[in-house]
Each structure stands twice: as C-alpha cells, then as structure tokens.
C-alpha cells in the first residue's frame, strides 16, 4: 500500500484533474444557462489541436493558449447558433460536434504536417510552464512548484466562477435563464444573449483544458487525445450538482481514480496474488454518476430549463 499512496499520487491526481476541472467548469456555464453541453469532448479536442498547431508555428505557448481559447469559443459559438438560433436538438448537435472533431483535427494535421493525425513534437521550452518557472527563488519548494501553471489557473477559475455565479448580477441572470427563462425575460434579461455567453464561455474554458492536454501535460496533439475526458467532466458536473466547488471536488475524485490506476499497475495485488484489474477502477466515475443521477447519493437536480430552447411569447 505504501508504494501506492505517495506524494506523487497527489500530484498526478492534480495533473489528471486539471483538464477535467476546466472542461467541467465550461459545462457549468453552459448548462446553468440552460443549454446541454455534450460537446465538451469535441471542444477539448478543438482546443488541444489548435494549441499544439499554433504553438508549433509561433514558438510560444501563451499564443497557443490564446488561440485554443479562441477556437473553443468559436466552435461553441457555432453550437450556440445551431441550438439557440435554429433550435436544433442540443444533444444531437453536441454529438455531431464530437464526431466532427474526431475527424477535423486529423484532416488538418494531415494537410499541415503530412502526418496521420498528430502534430509534431513541441520542444519542452515552448510548453505551458510549471509554476517553478515563475518562482525560481524557492527551490526547496520544488515539489509544489512543479505543478503546472494551468492547474493553478484552473483553481483560480473555480473560485472566480463561484464568485461570478453567486455574487454578481451576471451570475444571477445566467442562473435565472437556466431555471426560469420566462421570468428572466419578463425582468428584462435577454435569455438568448445570456445563453450565447454561457455556451461560448464553456468553449473558452474547454479550450484551455484542451491546450493543457496537448501543450501542458504532453508535447503534441495526438488523435482523439481527449479520450473520453469530456464525458468524465460532464459526469463530474452532475456529481457536483452543477456547483463550481463541488464540481471541482468531483473532478479531483475522478482524477484520483485515474491516477490510482496508473499507480497500481503491477504494484497492487489481490490477496490471491493476482493483479487488481484496472478496468474496475476505470469504471468508478461512470458508475458513481449513474448512482448519483438515480438519486441514491443526495439529489442532483439539473437546471430546470436545461435542454429547452426558449421561445419568446408573442
């Protein structure tokens, strides 16, 4: 057991949770405004590919990050356009976007880099830096400052989201259009504008999460590198009852389960001497989500108007 529960487990939990937190926060803005965002997976991929490609040409991770944010918001704008303006089914649109971004990055990387679906390696100095880059004067704290700056950004975004959602007029309006759009409309809030903003914020945040995947955690974009993280983020959002801090805790839990599987491989044994199959640990987030949704562990209630396009009374 000692070999498993080490400090490195804590840090790999943080590392693996970071993209989940960012994507789930993104989902939170969208869903709190009343638009289901099943496209988090596709948005992560869009952000990851854009970040890696732009960084490769610009030799600067921050430009890559900005491009990823822009790309995420742009794709999210298209989702919002389909779902809000043309009242397309939100789940179907999201599924379409997810499939689109299985293909599009691969097509583009084939053309840009003559590769089959991945971008070239990006040198280490051009990746999103760890905190130690900014805090060179405290080498004895190295173990803490080795955390990526994006992880800190994710934490900050959680606190910002909490403040914005519950302490600002904007947050009140966002929640209002997700719970009771008619009342919000009557109070003079533009329902559709708030929803456009909510969805685009989700794209921007998922874009950061994607950038972290390609130019933070690894050093290139590979085909389908989100590998289901968008869906785990969605699960965490539900587990966290659509609230920022709880959602982050859910992401940490799921990230921990993920970290545990890698850490346990070949180390942990059942009393009978066999390996513990990692598949059962991989299942945890999904099983937990189903149980939570069914109402066995507290009630998780979705925003009331989630998934319903708003039709203004004439």
């Amino acid at each position: 057991m000692r070999q498993i529960f080490t400090l490195s487990l804590v840090f790999s939990t943080i590392r693996l949770s970071t993209p989940l937190v960012l994507a789930a926060l993104g989902g939170l803005y969208s869903e709190r405004s009343g638009v289901i965002n099943i496209a988090l997976e596709g948005l992560l991929l869009a952000g990851a590919f854009t970040a890696a490609s732009v960084t490769f040409y610009a030799h600067n991770p921050w430009i890559g990050l900005a491009a990823a944010i822009f790309a995420g918001a742009l794709v999210a704008y298209l989702i919002a356009l389909a779902c809000i303006r043309f009242k397309a089914d939100q789940v179907v649109t999201g599924t379409g976007i997810n499939i689109l971004f299985l293909g599009l990055p691969a097509v583009l990387s084939g053309a840009l880099f003559l590769s089959s679906g991945s971008t070239p390696q990006i040198p280490k100095e051009n990746l999103l830096p760890a905190l130690s880059r900014f805090l060179p004067f405290m080498p004895e704290w190295r173990i803490f400052t080795d955390v990526s700056s994006v992880s800190l950004l994710a934490l900050v975004m959680v606190l910002v989201t909490r403040y914005v959602l519950y302490r600002t007029p904007f947050g009140l309006r966002l929640r209002a259009v997700g719970e009771n759009p008619e009342a919000a409309d009557a109070a003079g809030v533009s329902v559709n504008l708030m929803r456009y903003i909510g969805v685009m914020l989700s794209g921007a945040l998922a874009g950061i999460g994607g950038a972290y995947l390609s130019i933070g955690q690894s050093s290139l974009f590979t085909r389908n590198m989100a590998s289901g993280r968008g869906f785990i983020a969605l699960a965490a959002l539900i587990f966290g009852k659509w609230r920022p801090v709880q959602t982050m805790l859910a992401c940490l839990l799921f990230g921990f389960a993920d970290a545990l599987t890698t850490q346990m491989q070949g180390v942990a044994k059942l009393p009978s001497g066999e390996d513990i199959p990692v598949q059962f640990i991989l299942m945890i987030p999904y099983v937990v989500t189903i149980i939570v949704l069914a109402g066995f562990i507290g009630q998780s209630r979705a925003p009331k108007a989630l998934g319903i396009p708003y039709q203004k009374e004439r």
């Binding site: 389909a82 009242k87 599924t95 379409g96 499939i99 299985l102 293909g103 097509v107 679906g117």
Partner: peptide, 22 residues
C-alpha cells in the same frame, strides 16, 4: 493531403446540419 478522417468530419457536419435544419 486529405486523409480518410474526412469521413468523420463529413458525418459530424451532416449531423449538425440535420439537427439545425431550421
């Protein structure tokens, strides 16, 4: 230049367009 991934891309676009037929 074009890879077979163009099929996934087309599928995704078809889905979005059919959903947003309005």
């Amino acid at each position: 230049h074009v890879s077979k991934d163009i099929v996934d891309m087309l599928l995704g676009i078809v889905i979005v367009f059919v959903a947003a037929e309005a």
